[in-house]
């Protein structure tokens, strides 16, 4: 289909993009287009101007900056999956990217787009939130950095204002003795949105959980930080029964709806199972690191 009255713009740098975004009527930025073009084709959004980010070099690349990893908003899922830094420090993010869509889509879809589409089932946000990532937002005269856990305000809603562009994602390098794991349940092996996805982070010092974060996706309008379940873990020694208790608590912290992918009941069951599995996996990551360290 042709979207006849759309005008496409190709700003060459960030400031031009931000200027256009502020000036043009019914304008949206176009990254990979794997979400936006589908919305437009289905008549779900009205757009008059599309601002392609394609030519903006500042938005590309994954690199280490101090004690953080910076991912440009235009990093594709394929780049995330294969990036050595990501695989070294937060393999769970590579897992999340690998669980998404299909081969072709992953070479088009971007990190910025996955976050900014603010879809409840999006697969990167849970791991990013668990990893305590922040996002950098630019508008015409300033930029700000906000925690991703505060970014989403509802389905397809976020604090990113009109005229604001998401430029980078920063992930603090996880401290030693930390494991981050991601689990997704979907109805087929490729091109499938999450029925539920969960990411958990555990930092274990001297045999005790020092910090824990459990983040649930697709079970509420925005990703849910299961704070009760996370809190329950802190200060305790990891054990099967502890994890099971946390999983049971997490189950009650999700607030899913029933839709064509799953009912409230099934989603709650899945929260519990996936939470426990991510905790087990995060723990074994830490144990693996310790073993290697020795």
């Amino acid at each position: 289909m042709v979207i006849s009255d759309i005008a496409l713009h190709f700003p060459k740098n960030l400031s031009e993009a931000i200027r256009l975004l502020g000036e043009l009527e019914e304008a949206r930025v176009l990254a990979g287009g794997t979400d936006l073009l589908i919305e437009i084709k289905q008549g779900l959004v009205m757009v008059k101007n599309l601002i392609s980010l394609k030519k903006i070099k500042e938005l590309k690349g994954i690199e280490k900056k101090g004690n953080r990893i910076r991912m440009g908003a235009l990093s594709t899922l394929e780049e995330v999956m294969s990036d050595p830094l990501i695989n070294q420090y937060i393999p769970a993010l590579a897992d999340a990217a690998a669980s998404m869509a299909s081969f072709q889509i992953r070479s088009m879809a971007t990190v910025g787009g996955n976050i900014s589409s603010a879809v409840p089932s999006a697969d990167l946000p849970p791991t990013l939130i668990a990893a305590e990532a922040t996002v950098e937002l630019h508008c015409s005269d300033s930029s700000r950095e906000v925690s991703l856990s505060e970014f989403f305000t509802g389905p397809r809603e976020m604090i990113c204002g009109k005229g604001e562009l998401l430029t980078s994602v920063f992930i603090p390098l996880p401290p030693d003795e930390t494991g981050i794991a991601f689990q997704k349940f979907a109805l087929r092996e490729a091109s499938a949105l999450a029925v539920v996805n969960v990411a958990s982070k555990l930092t274990i010092k001297k045999g005790k959980i020092e910090r824990a974060l459990i983040v649930l996706g697709a079970v509420a309008p925005t990703p849910v930080l299961a704070s009760k379940a996370s809190g329950l873990l802190c200060g305790n020694k990891p054990s099967d029964s502890l994890f099971e208790k946390a999983a049971l608590t997490a189950r009650e912290e999700g607030n899913p709806i029933s839709d064509i992918r799953g009912s409230i009941w099934h989603r709650k069951e899945l929260i519990q199972v996936l939470t426990r599995r991510t905790l087990d996996e995060a723990l074994s990551q830490v144990q693996g690191k310790l073993r290697r360290g020795k």
């Binding site: 496409l8 176009l30 990979g32 794997t34 072709q104 070479s107 088009m108």
Partner: peptide, 13 residues
Amino acid sequence: GQPKNSCLLLAAA
């Protein structure tokens, strides 16, 4: 050189 879905690419881009 990369496989992509041409239904999700705008020709002008």
